[in-house]
Amino acid sequence: MQRALTLYNTTIGKKAVMAASGFILLGFTVGHLSGNLKAFAGPTEYNEYARWLRTVPALLWGARIALLFAVLAHIGSAFQLWKRNKDARPSRYQKNVSVATDYAAKTMYFSGPILLFYILFHLAHLTFGGMLFGEGAMFGIEGYAWEVSNPYNNMVRGFQHWPVVIPYVLGVVALGVHLFHGIWSMFQSLGANHPKYNHLRRDLAIGLAALLTLGNLSFPIAVMAGYLEPTNLTFHFPELM
């Protein structure tokens, strides 16, 4: 009897989907950080960049749809594998010692959901325009005036308030931990291995996870240290409306 086996129906296929979607999301986080680092170049640079991102709606929406698809594929395959793996060991060990794995690998099912909630929070905070925290909004913070055409001030003023800083720091740390295992795991799942380069996979995972964690933490630190301050310049960008 012949039977067509589609790639996704296999455990290895699901891991390949997980790795490929993870790679797309990793690419986004790198781009996202490099764009945001323009904050250190000044408010005009930062806001011009934000405006530029929205000048070609087809590209903007193309990227958004691709990211949404990657997130759904990542979560969908993770959930299906989690269920399968749970069923593969119905009776648990009384004593169980881990000899090889690390904290990051063991907590992927925690850092993942934390990241999901963080991303929703982050979008509600900055993309959907002060829906959560802008003065007069649902969890409006007094003194956090929302300026539609001034993403720089929205970011800087946000980090002057603990209710914004705390979830942000938690999210960024969860991202770093998730990537420490995820980046290494991605190579393994896609079969990208070669005896000559294998040791570099862990180095790359550590390097990128550290870069993204420290890079993203630099914003709240710079704001709270007073290095980045709200600007008095006014901007008018219809693209950001």
């Binding site: 699901k14 000899v99 992927m108």
Partner: peptide, 22 residues
Amino acid sequence: MVAQMDAEGFGSCTNHGECEKA
């Protein structure tokens, strides 16, 4: 062999590396 492995109800690899040590 992978199809049979899946049909037997084994879990998937999440790259912990415990197997290599055991």
